Simulated scan of single mutants.
Amino acid sequence: MSLLERLNNDMKQAMKNKEKDRLSVIRMIKASLQNEAIKLGKQELTADEELTILSREVKQRRDSLHEFENAGRQDLVEKIETELTYVNIYMPEQLSEEEIEEIVKETVSEVNATSKADMGKVMGTLMPKVKGKADGALVNKLVQKYLS
């Protein structure tokens, strides 16, 4: 079942169950997918493109969450946390820190990186391997740890 089909089914279910928050998030995700398809001039997006959009949605919400926490807006923090929960349902299972660390070690040795000057080379090879399965900030931190 494609992501769009799954979203449509979940949207129908959310309407039947009168889950306004869930319905709103599903509609936002669908709109993002449709906007990207229009932008790229395609009828359907590939799974990789869908994953990119979902990752973007998660990142936007995490950034908003951080900003609202700093501003002391607990009402908005709760709303964003709820949205994040619903978006994460459609994301692939996230890798643990240990799994990411193992992939970082393999990639560092694969590209023969020795210093922080090789950071771009490592990240360029590493990010496609963990796309959608790991937080970019955590990956960046682990790469810096192994290159220092």
Rank of each mutant, 00 (worst) to 15 (best):
K129W: 00
V25E: 01
E106H: 06
A31W: 09
I53S: 02
K42S: 08
A137G: 01
A31Y: 10
E101G: 03
N8V: 05
D21S: 14
Y146Q: 15
K129S: 01
K116Q: 12
K129E: 01
R62G: 04
L33T: 07
K116R: 12
L7Y: 07
N140C: 06
S2Y: 00
S109T: 11
D10W: 02
K12R: 14
G72Y: 06
D21M: 09
S148A: 13
G132A: 14
S64Y: 08
V108H: 05
L7K: 13
L65W: 07
E67N: 07
N17G: 07
L51S: 09
Q43W: 02
E93W: 03
P92N: 11
R6N: 04
E36R: 09
N88T: 10
V77P: 12
Y146P: 05
N35K: 14
N8D: 12
D10A: 14
I100K: 05
L65H: 03
Q34I: 09
M11F: 07
T46C: 05
E36S: 09
E98V: 14
V122A: 05
E50N: 15
T114E: 15
G72W: 05
E49Y: 08
V122R: 06
T82I: 01
L23S: 02
N9W: 00
E19N: 06
Q13A: 06
E49L: 12
L54A: 10
N140Y: 13
V143Y: 04
E98S: 14
K39A: 09
E97W: 03
M127S: 14
E101H: 10
I38W: 05
M11N: 06
V139T: 04
S115K: 11
K79H: 01
G72F: 07
F68C: 07
E57L: 12
K20Q: 10
N9I: 03
Y146W: 12
E99I: 09
N9G: 01
N17H: 08
M1V: 07
N112M: 07
N9L: 05
K133I: 05
Q60F: 02
D135W: 00
K131S: 11
T125L: 01
Q13S: 12
L7D: 06
I89E: 15
V143Q: 07
S96W: 06
D10N: 14
T85R: 15
E81H: 04
K129Y: 00
Y86S: 08
M119V: 10
A31Q: 15
E78N: 13
E50F: 07
I100D: 00
V130E: 12
T107S: 12
R6I: 00
S109K: 13
V58Y: 04
S32K: 08
R56N: 08
Q74L: 14
M119E: 12
I29P: 00
T114Y: 02
L142Y: 07
Q34Y: 09
T107M: 05
M119I: 12
L147D: 11
L147K: 06
M15K: 15
G136T: 12
V122Q: 01
A71C: 02
E106N: 13
A113C: 03
T114Q: 10
M91V: 09
Q144L: 10
M123G: 03
V58Q: 04
V122S: 04
I80C: 00
